[in-house]
Write a protein that binds this DNA or RNA. Sequence first.
DNA 1: ATTGACAGAAACGTATACGATATGCAAGAC
DNA 2: GTCTTGCATATCGTATACGTTTCTGTCAAT
Lengths: 224, 224
Amino acid sequence: MKTETHPLTATKPMADSIYDDLKESIIAGSLPPGAPLRQDEIARRHEVSKVPVREALLKLEVDGFVQFRKNRGAIVRKLSSAEILHILDIRIALECRALELAVPNMIEMDFTTARNVLTTYSRETHSEGWSEMNIRFHEALYEPCGNPQLLQLIADMQQRIGPYLRKFVSQAAGLERPSLEHDQILDACERGETNEAVALLRAHIETTKKETAASLRRHGDHVS
Amino acid sequence: MKTETHPLTATKPMADSIYDDLKESIIAGSLPPGAPLRQDEIARRHEVSKVPVREALLKLEVDGFVQFRKNRGAIVRKLSSAEILHILDIRIALECRALELAVPNMIEMDFTTARNVLTTYSRETHSEGWSEMNIRFHEALYEPCGNPQLLQLIADMQQRIGPYLRKFVSQAAGLERPSLEHDQILDACERGETNEAVALLRAHIETTKKETAASLRRHGDHVS
DNA sequence: ATTGACAGAAACGTATACGATATGCAAGAC
DNA sequence: GTCTTGCATATCGTATACGTTTCTGTCAAT
């Protein structure tokens, strides 16, 4: 029984745990954009050496969550207004394609799953849960597309801009309009009207983009 | 004066050089899918220790070029037929969106650049240069979209399946048809017909997808 | 009082060292 | 003769150690 403090390589690489942990903190917003990520400190907190910490940080750099400054350490990547809008454009491309591929594959269970998400959160009209609902509803819509790589890319893009959108969702967008649009999209899917559903989804994300652009213009890029 | 064999941190991180080097080898195909990537050997070849090598390999894992097997080392990621086709679906999404955004921004210079690419390579009708031409032509078309992140994603997707497509381009696709389609797409762009250009591009990539699917069915997944 | 320089500290990037795990082969049991 | 068991080798994952670069605070000079 030498479990000690370190299960060691018994289960899985330490770097992966740290990677997951940091990524979650960044996505959740507890590590805000611009926050310094000091290797020594993270290593102490996780009771490991710097090497696996560096590995985790480097993977996050590829993901776009972390930025390295030559010999000056890493910080949480801070997206400019333009970059946020650019990622929304990418989401339009990916999510419309996913829905287009998904609609012909949808079965009854997919509709009920999506409806459940909508109703479950319909009372949760506060920004925390609403954002979660938004993600899950879209996931449910796209899942039948049968393209795991596409789904992963969509999730990546949503996670990258998640912290920024959450700052605005409560203020900029009323909660009525998005809900209505979600209903309309799901209706079109149930009727098998692929083109209509895609058009509605596209307009839906375009609206999000416009509202985000407006919020960014008003609030500027200050992080806090 | 202990510069020895190592310029050390004088210029830039060693891991980056190794990352670039390995990535290029994988994309070019000199490291074929399934090839083992032993840390010690790579470290010796680059005259560094294992640490920066590991960092490079981990970044490539995030990129999707490398696969780690628990305690059994890393290999060049081998894509299944399904994954290749899935990535082509993603390309359809991303490239159509890029072209849609690009057409309204195109100026005279963009057209001449694209035409130059087409004519420069029109004689290079052998698979090596043809593949390069294909990439460059598409790059030229999408560049005016003004979305660097989108362009980067497109490049990533093309690189991931590049080695596989090159195996088929010379056999499956005649070289006439793609060239003709390229001309048609560019024509539509010059006339400012965004929708038509996007439709043509979409059909163009769909055709590539179908031909790739056919080749995969015939040749199976054997790597060689 | 402001500015420049320098010493000390902090943090990074890499090398070396070591424990842990998987693979291959050889020897022995049934 | 075939299957099992144990050891040797190879390779990974992490800890520790060290040189280098960057930052910070103090002190002297104008």
